[in-house]
Design a protein around this nucleic acid. Sequence first.
DNA 1: TCATCACCTGGAGA
DNA 2: ATCTCCAGGTGAT
Length: 282
Amino acid sequence: MQELKKIDLDITINSGQVFLWDKIDGIWHGVNGSEILKIIQEPFKIISSRKNTSDFFRQEENIEKILQSIKKDKLVRDAVTRFPGLRLLRQDPFQCYISFICSSNASIQNIKQMLKKITEKFGKRIMFDGHEFHTFPTAKKLANSSMAELLSCGLGFRAKYIKKASQDVLSGKIDFNYLKKADYKTAKEILLDVYGIGDKIADCILLFSLEKIEAFPIDRWTLRILRKYYSDVFNESISKSITKKKYETIHEKIVRHFGPFAGYSQQFLFKMERDLNNKKWL
DNA sequence: TCATCACCTGGAGA
DNA sequence: ATCTCCAGGTGAT
């Protein structure tokens, strides 16, 4: 029973959810909004630079129930068997929002580099555990930055997205607390209205930071998985590219098939397929 | 509604 | 060395 609840840090951090994490002397350290986290694997312990820390690993959640639910699908069951310690994380919403806007048409290494520069240029420098870190900047800080400063972070065409998206948070057009309370569909529509956010990125933000576990981001990897293993299940051939309308109808089928915790199944499938293809992580 | 295409940038592979 | 291609997409025709 205790084994089922064990979180595997290497696997979880290397599953495409977070980018600002590094192993220092064999121990994972990472940035989550205004806090820096240090996580010991054995015995499992979370050390935060802040007094009040969030439930980053979702330890309050009934993971046994969730795994039991998603394991009804055979391929997900295989993935859970291979990566039993993989967990969904609960990230700082603004950092998650900016991170995935940066992810557009970029490799994980590239995304990490962009975000690292953003924290170094705009975040607050703090010493923690004997090392130097930079917190993730506030929306205000990024909204008021110049385009030249943003471009110097290697953001390229994403710089204009980041600037506008930050302004939308500052103005209150995007209110993460409201989005957390709203239902999936409502929250998604609001996010889709942000310049630089489409279906895939909206779903990542919803799943990784806004408590929408039914979100199932469909990127080139998940699409590949769906094409490869689920065309029969969904009773339709899935094309190589996906249109806006198609994304919506497929998502409905996904939730019907995988259930209310579909986002968890996505995480296991994504991890498995990328590992299978020897793709690099952090 | 749908199919193309350009897009910043850095790294890998030819 | 130099070039091409691609990377967890999105917005504009």
